[in-house]
């Protein structure tokens, strides 16, 4: 019997949302339109229209060593051109952000090739070849995993994911990279991800309502959906905990769990 890939257990809404984001067959919903020039400006790695800098000659030039693995793996577009590796980093608020850093890692690794991602308490960095990164960044700013108020694009000083929201409902940012625009009722970025002031304001749309976010989030919370209310998820967590406690790095040696 062919193996059918499984993603996450559970029946509650965060469990279903986790499964959905991880499944590469599910097309994520696009919620807003941000031009690619603006995405490039927000990241601040190059100026829009500027050539991509390279760190090695294009693979097609044939200067690669004779290696069976290199022949086996199809390079991503940026690797073909020898692009630099650049990054984008998202911070997700604990106040029902659409996704949280750990699920971002699962989602990225499940959906993309040629990436390196790192999870920290409140932020998730993704490193990839520059031209591929720009496409991915645009996708992730425009789709349902991004919320204008509760997701931040922050390269450094990401502090804020576990802070209370401000009076406008925006996640705290010590560098105030984004502001609330009361006229348009949207959030606008005025600094790039490392706080360099932008030459124009970049609008990333209106924040979703808390009601909607509570339905969409992947976060289990005592004041939302409690993880203990999902029997299957709890069982799975207990099993991992037990295997890790009893077996350390050799969980397969623990019998009867």
């Amino acid at each position: 019997m062919a193996y059918k890939r499984q993603f996450y257990p559970g029946t509650t809404s965060p469990a279903v949302a986790r499964r959905r984001l991880m499944d590469p067959k599910v097309k994520l919903q696009k919620l807003r339109e941000v031009p690619i020039e603006d995405v490039v400006k927000l990241m601040g790695h190059r100026n829009p229209g500027e050539d991509y800098k390279s760190i090695h000659p294009p693979i097609e030039e044939g200067s690669e060593p004779d290696c069976p693995i290199r022949k086996l793996v199809t390079p991503i577009d940026g690797a073909k051109h020898g692009d630099r590796i650049r990054y984008i980093q998202f911070t997700d608020s604990v106040y029902f952000a659409p996704v949280s850093p750990y699920q971002r890692a699962w989602m990225y690794l499940s959906r993309y090739r040629g990436i390196d991602t790192g999870t920290l308490s409140g932020r998730q960095i993704i490193e990839v070849r520059e031209r591929d990164l720009e496409k991915m960044a645009k996708e992730f700013i425009e789709n349902e995993t991004f919320d204008a108020a509760l997701t931040g694009i922050r390269g450094a000083t990401v502090h804020g994911h576990a802070c209370r929201l401000d009076e406008n409902g925006l996640m705290f940012d010590a560098w105030q990279r984004y502001l609330w625009d009361p006229k348009r009722k949207e959030v606008k970025y005025v600094k790039d991800q490392v706080a360099l002031p932008l030459d124009k304001e970049i609008f990333v749309g209106a924040p979703a309502s808390m009601e909607d976010l509570k339905k969409r989030t992947t976060i289990f919370r005592a004041d939302g959906v409690d993880m203990r209310d999902d029997k299957e998820v709890t069982k799975y967590q207990h099993r991992i905990h037990k295997l890790r406690t009893l077996g350390g790095y050799q969980p397969f040696k623990v019998k009867g769990v």
Binding site: H159, Q176, L196
Partner: peptide, 22 residues
């Protein structure tokens, strides 16, 4: 509360004015 630095305190733009409106 949450601290608002006067200057950008880390990263490539360290030393730049923060200009936080609050």
């Amino acid at each position: 509360g949450e601290s608002l630095p006067r200057k950008i305190n880390s990263g490539p733009n360290k030393g730049l004015d923060n200009n936080h409106t609050q």
